[in-house]
Write a protein that binds this DNA or RNA. Structure first.
Lengths: 133, 133
DNA sequence: ACAATATAATTGCATTTGCAATAAAGGAGT
DNA sequence: ACTCCTTTATTGCAAATGCAATTATATTGT
């Protein structure tokens, strides 16, 4: 029943379990590593935009960012033109660990698609983009 | 970067946010409704097998099942041949609410795939099955 | 300019989550 | 039968999660 929607959820949970194990020692489990990746790639988003970009609850995102600020991975900067927002930037510590995080994501992506031909991978990407949540 | 693995995670989180809202009043959010669906469909799995079937952490699954037992949706039965395991069965209350849960899953599945032709849907299913987490 | 509405950040609080440890069986090899 | 190893269920504890409410600022309408 509904194999596609169930498979998508199952794959996500399996990847989450794996990443939680992999990043436990760095304490970057529970998607924390994803925040660092995204902020390094797109520095300067404000808190709400970052949460929306990752499709994560704004409160959870806010607390996670606070956690990473305390641990010197991220920092906030006020916006001169808009006092409501705070923009999120990576620290040197975040940039330093980024290659490891990127390598993990690359490896998981490669593993996920290992049985697919390049044509199939392109087609899967196209079809997933057509999905609407 | 890595659009497929990111898209899969994003779709899962969007579906989770939607289902949390939809099932808030029934207090069947946070995937609780999925447990009921699965147990009605496959009654008699033992606790660990149920968790593995849903790709959910065994401790989390255990506590969730306890929650649903307390609320009269599920019940446990000892196995006469194996005293280590407890099998999970749905109650009448679970069977009564199952159509609503099934309808929600059907609607979300239909929405997800609304822009795909039947051929594309079949191809997406095939490609997702080839993915390995 | 002023009021009403909307958006962003933040906090309170209760619940969920999951690693690690423990307890109770079961299974395999001798 | 006995020891060792595995599997299952369970609990303790600390952390993550997210709804609802609050505060501050910005935007829109008149």
């Amino acid at each position: 029943m509904f194999p596609i929607i169930r498979r998508i959820g199952a794959l996500t949970r399996l990847i989450q379990i794996d990443s939680n194990r992999y990043f436990k020692d760095d304490k970057l489990n529970n998607n924390l590593f994803i925040y660092i990746i995204r902020v390094v790639e797109r520095p300067g988003l404000f808190l709400g935009a970052l949460a929306d970009d990752m499709q994560i609850d704004r409160t959870t995102s806010f607390r996670t960012v606070q956690n990473l600020i305390k641990r010197d991975y991220l920092r906030l900067a006020a916006d001169p033109a808009n006092r409501k927002i705070k923009r999120v930037y990576p620290t040197e510590k975040a940039k330093a660990i980024y290659p490891k995080l990127h390598a993990y994501e690359a490896a998981k992506s490669a593993q996920l698609l290992a049985n697919l031909t390049p044509t199939e991978t392109a087609e899967l990407q196209r079809l997933l983009e057509k999905c609407q949540a």
